[in-house]
């Protein structure tokens, strides 16, 4: 009886520790040039080196801005000027088989160098654009979106 209780307790503790809490960051800013903002809860925050990125953050660059991010699974994302995208989903928890990475690109130029989530679960990584969905297997992909809706 004690063994069952302890096992349940360990499993529960395991489950709690391995959940990404709402305040867990999913990436970090590692290059910034000129105007670049992180929009979080409708508040624009000027992007700075080493700033942490959360799920649902909208990244926006100005007419001469650029930004580079490294995500927790080693994915490298960078954008050129007049660009905008949102991190819709990011789950990197192989021990619980929770893997997913979805980015929605609204406009601009975008570079995506895939990381461990794509290596472990290729179908769980998607880039959404106004005109199409992009799936990938271990790769570097460039996307340009013009004339946003």
């Amino acid at each position: 009886m004690t063994i069952i209780a302890v096992s349940l307790l360990i499993t529960l503790a395991n489950a709690i520790w391995s959940q990404a809490s709402p305040t867990t960051f999913v990436g970090i800013v590692r290059s910034v040039c000129n105007e670049a903002y992180i929009h979080r809860d409708d508040t624009p925050i000027p992007a700075e080196m080493n700033m942490k990125i959360m799920i649902r953050d909208v990244i926006k660059t100005g007419p001469d801005g650029s930004l580079g991010l490294i995500f927790e699974d080693d994915t490298i994302v960078s954008v050129g000027p007049a660009s905008e995208f949102i991190v819709e989903e990011f789950l990197f928890n192989p021990a619980d088989k929770k893997l997913s990475f979805v980015v929605r690109i609204f406009q601009g130029t975008f570079s995506f160098l895939s990381g461990q989530i794509n290596k472990l679960a290729p179908d769980s990584v998607r880039l959404e654009t106004p005109d199409a969905t992009i799936g990938m297997r271990g790769t570097h992909v460039l996307v340009q979106v013009v004339g946003r809706r």
Partner: peptide
């Protein structure tokens, strides 16, 4: 097309 996005890669 992509020079700025590429030079911004960390």
């Amino acid at each position: 097309v992509f020079s700025r996005a590429l030079t911004a890669q960390p």
